[in-house]
Design a protein around this nucleic acid. Structure first.
Lengths: 226, 226
DNA sequence: AACTATTTTTAGCCTTGCCTAAATAATTTT
DNA sequence: AAAATTATTTAGGCAAGGCTAAAAATAGTT
């Protein structure tokens, strides 16, 4: 149980974690296969191995969920990944659409020392460049202020972008061109059947639903009346 | 021929390069096996594959040497490795006995972009923390000032440490404790049968031959007589 | 030149992590 | 509830890159 896992195994655990976050249900072989760009049969194989190692609970035909030790490993990998994204972005001049790929490779390779150095130099940050939360040294996820996908907010609400739930390079690049970057102020103009109409500075956009559901803001407080 | 090599293949090429540097002869399966902590039979296998790929010239029982395309790959890996060592040391507060291990893993994983960013931030350096030369963007090794292992110098010669040919953590740590670090000024007191007697500051040491042959200095010029 | 010792190679096996094709279970439709 | 569709698992294979044991080549000694 002390043996170091393969990169592949770490990836499986990471994506089981990420998929569980969304759905609360057991993670299906199919969903994993799609994520990992691998055939479902290969997933079944790996799930059996991870189950042997007590890193997941796996009931054939019923999907998998992490055990607590599996979850710790997933969080460790996630911490690596998100610290790396921020490090690349803050310290090495990467743009937010470039960080994901590089982090994806490095996350399995860096030492605890490297992780600690990054965290230190970054001032023990709580969120990466996409607003994703970074587990702390004890692998606890930070409890940030409430954030909302812009699809869930009423017209008139304003707030700053705090999270963008995609790692797709081209999408991120597109958002950059629209000034829809981290911390950008934004107003919800209207929810419509084909998207969310918003204002950013002087510009107005109609963001298609699929994209809009990935953009999250923290609502501004009502102005304090003095 | 465009296909990316495995980490293992890259390592073979790197170590063939490093071994050729020393001896000028073909690299033997045995020497490689020892370096790579692998059995000679495994080496033979890999040499056949690398030969297939025209990355080495391999004559059974006669050892291997790099082709020019194999050498380019070795130099690329070496550039990654040495830039990483310097980056870890300069930008992340690693000590020189810690950098090797980490660089060993990262060298196969970082992108060209990462390489370029490091080089840029470090001001396109020519030597790593052990004084090893860093191939430039075009993979040319820098031609530095002449350096000499302290075993090869006469009594009375002084100079600054410019290269230390070991990556052994404990040896490096020991050298640090003795203030035998990069750029330290040093005087050769005498060559003796059991080692080289030297002075560093006020301290005098007798460095065993095996270690001494790994420590290189650039000789000080004679004081200009005005 | 012959014999011994050392290196190197061959042959066959193992594990990891992927694949395809076929079989089986679960789910949805009619 | 039976049939059809979809999801999952089983079975058998493949490539990488190690391993061991045995055979063959080279080198060193007498």
């Amino acid at each position: 149980m002390k043996t170091k896992l393969s990169e592949s195994q770490e990836d499986y655990l990471k994506h089981i974690f990420l998929l569980s976050e969304k759905s609360d249900e057991n993670v299906s072989a199919n969903a994993l296969a799609e994520r990992l760009k691998v055939k479902p049969a290969s997933v079944t194989n790996m799930l059996k191995k991870l189950s042997e190692l007590s890193l997941i609970e796996y009931v054939p035909y019923k999907g998998a969920s992490l055990t607590s030790s599996g979850e710790l490993i997933a969080l460790e990998v996630l911490r690596h990944h998100r610290l790396l994204e921020l490090y690349l972005s803050e310290m090495m001049g990467y743009s937010w659409d470039e960080v994901h790929e590089e982090a994806e490779k490095l996350e399995h390779v860096i030492s605890e020392r490297f992780e600690a150095k990054m965290a230190e130099q970054l001032g023990h940050p709580t969120h990466d460049p996409h607003g994703d939360p970074i587990p702390d040294q004890n692998l606890k996820l930070p409890s940030g202020p409430a954030i909302y996908p812009i699809t869930s907010l009423k017209a008139g609400v304003t707030g700053a972008i705090t999270r963008v739930l995609t790692q797709d390079k081209d999408t991120l690049n597109m958002l950059t061109r629209l000034s829809l970057v981290m911390n950008a102020e934004l107003e919800i103009i209207a929810q419509e059947r084909n998207g969310v109409r918003i204002r950013v500075g002087d510009e107005r956009f109609l963001i298609p639903l699929e994209l809009a559901s990935n953009i999250c803001i923290s609502k501004n407080e009502f102005e304090k009346t003095k």
